[in-house]
Amino acid sequence: MGGWTIGIIGGSGLYALPGLEEIARHDVETPWGRPSDAILEGRIGTTRLLFLPRHGAGHRIPPSEINARANVDALKQLGATDLLAISSVGSLREELPPGRFVVVDQFIDRTVARPASFFGTGLVAHVSLADPTCPRLSASAAAAVEAAGGDAATGATYLAMEGPQFSTRAESLMYRQWGADIIGMTAMPEARLAREAELPYALVGMVTDYDCWREDEAGVVATDVVAQMHANGATARKLVQAFAKALPAERTPSPIDTVLDHALLTVPAARDPAMEEKLGAILRRLTTSPAT
Rank of each mutant, 00 (worst) to 15 (best):
W32E: 03
S167A: 05
A180P: 03
Q77P: 08
P255E: 08
K245S: 06
F166H: 13
G163K: 14
I8D: 02
E41P: 09
F119W: 10
I182F: 02
D109Y: 04
E217C: 06
G163P: 08
Q106P: 01
P290N: 13
L286H: 14
A180F: 06
L50M: 02
V207H: 00
A197P: 06
V204N: 03
R93P: 06
I108T: 10
P253Q: 08
T186Y: 03
A80F: 03
T81P: 13
E190S: 05
R34Y: 12
G233V: 10
L50T: 01
A269L: 12
S254H: 14
L247N: 03
Y210F: 09
V124S: 14
V225E: 10
A281W: 10
R54V: 02
R136I: 12
L96K: 14
V28C: 07
R169A: 06
L283A: 00
I66V: 15
L96N: 03
H126S: 04
T46P: 01
I256Y: 03
R195V: 10
L137N: 07
V112P: 05
I183V: 15
L96S: 07
R100N: 11
V103P: 00
D105F: 05
S36K: 02
Q177L: 04
W213I: 04
P255F: 06
S64M: 13
G10S: 05
T121E: 12
A68K: 07
A24K: 14
V220N: 05
A130H: 13
P18G: 07
L283I: 00
A113I: 09
A147Q: 04
A227K: 15
G233E: 08
P255A: 09
E162T: 02
T154C: 12
L159I: 14
I182S: 06
E171D: 13
A16N: 14
P97Y: 10
R284K: 15
E22R: 15
A227E: 12
L20W: 10
E162V: 03
P200H: 12
A244E: 05
L52V: 09
A231Y: 00
P164C: 11
A57Q: 07
E65C: 13
P62W: 01
M185R: 03
E95I: 12
E162W: 09
A236P: 07
Q241P: 01
G2T: 04
G79R: 04
Q77S: 11
R100D: 13
P35Y: 06
A180S: 09
E162C: 07
A269Q: 15
S128C: 09
A194I: 01
P53R: 08
L78R: 00
S12G: 05
G122Q: 07
V259S: 12
Q165C: 15
G33P: 01
R48I: 06
W32C: 00
V226M: 14
T292D: 11
R48M: 15
S167F: 06
G19N: 11
T111W: 08
D27R: 14
D109W: 02
G120H: 09
P248G: 10
I61L: 00
T287Y: 00
A180D: 04
A218E: 10
V226C: 11
G33Q: 04
A202T: 07
A116F: 10
A85N: 05
P132M: 03
R69V: 06
A152G: 02
D105G: 01
T168K: 02
G179A: 08
D257C: 05
R192K: 15
Y175D: 01
T133W: 11
Q228P: 03
T292M: 00
V102E: 04
P135L: 01
V225L: 10
T30W: 09
L137C: 10
